[in-house]
């Protein structure tokens, strides 16, 4: 009885979670312009995406922002995690509990506070401000992912390397880094996805001339019923799915300790 209730709720939950995405992909192939009913299969909406230069530019902006902020956020996060994992210093412990703050700060607030900072400092909004903002919200996550991996690591492995003739630097290079790699990759994946998908903080920190893909989608969704937005969104969902499958395969092969 309880079991059936649990299963029923789970099925409904999964439906509510996944059906919209399925419908989105389905309607991206729908010939009907209004999308009210099924008018047959078409690839028109995808073809139209190719004739939108603004999309190409937005995609490029999104990729530049995501790659740059991922590299920097992962580097900052890995360094900080290394410091925190090794030392039970009070400063490190305090820093760790402070990390929760950027994570629980609502995106709206983080976004406008950065907008205020840039405007007060007279920094022109654009690519650079978006990248700065994305690094800021990614760093706490990269620290936590790498730190989790580091904490799960046996510290006697590095000591073993020392007894085998490796000095600290070599032990770090030959033992710590390879074992930390799944965590670092996981952190990078997370940072990349957070950046690529972010709408709210980008909304406040992008200047009028710069648009990322989510900003363009938001504009399209609000203004028109142009079904090519379905095609674009469906492509994003598809991209995420592929990325996830690849990531799962990779992390599955290279030891446990991945991310969600």
């Amino acid at each position: 009885m309880t079991r059936r209730l649990v299963t029923t709720i789970a099925v409904l939950g999964y439906t509510a979670l996944l059906l919209p995405l399925l419908l989105l992909v389905l309607f991206s192939f729908n010939a009907s312009r209004s999308g009210a009913r099924w008018d047959g299969f078409t690839l028109d909406w995808y073809a139209r995406l190719l004739h939108r230069p603004d999309l190409t530019i937005a995609l490029r902006t999104s990729l530049i922002v995501a790659v740059t902020s991922t590299v920097i956020a992962t580097a900052l996060g890995t360094l900080a995690a290394l410091a925190m994992g090794r030392h039970r210093r009070r400063a490190a412990a305090a820093f760790e509990s402070l990390l929760v703050l950027p994570i629980v700060t609502p995106e709206v607030v983080a976004g406008i506070s950065l907008l205020i900072l840039f405007s007060a400092a007279g920094i022109h909004l654009g690519l650079v401000t978006i990248i700065i903002a994305h690094i800021t919200f990614s760093v706490p996550f990269t620290i936590m992912v790498v730190l989790a991996r580091l904490r799960g690591m046996d510290s006697s492995l590095e000591e073993a390397a020392l007894t085998l003739g490796a000095n600290e630097l070599t032990a770090f290079r030959r033992v710590t880094i390879p074992l930390l790699m799944p965590g670092i990759i996981g952190a990078a994946l997370l940072a990349f996805t957070l950046s690529f998908d972010d709408f709210v903080i980008t909304f406040f920190t992008a200047g009028p001339g710069t648009s990322t893909l989510p900003l363009v989608i938001y504009g399209m969704v609000r203004r028109t019923v142009e079904p090519s937005v379905n095609a674009l969104s469906a492509l994003l969902v598809l991209g995420t799915t592929l990325l996830l499958i690849v990531a799962h395969r990779w992390l599955g092969r290279h030891a446990s300790g991945g991310i969600a």
């Binding site: 509510a16 979670l17 996944l18 059906l19 919209p20 995405l21 419908l23 989105l24 309607f27 999308g35 996805t193 690529f196 998908d197 709408f199 989510p214 989608i217 938001y218 969704v221 937005v229 969104s233 994003l236 969902v237 995420t240 799915t241 990325l243 996830l244 969600a260």
Partner: peptide, 19 residues
């Protein structure tokens, strides 16, 4: 569950309209 977790929140919210 992980798939929607990683999918753009904007896209997912928009897709809810179809429902």
């Amino acid at each position: 569950v992980v798939l929607p977790f990683w999918t753009s929140f904007l896209v997912r919210t928009y897709a809810t309209i179809f429902l």
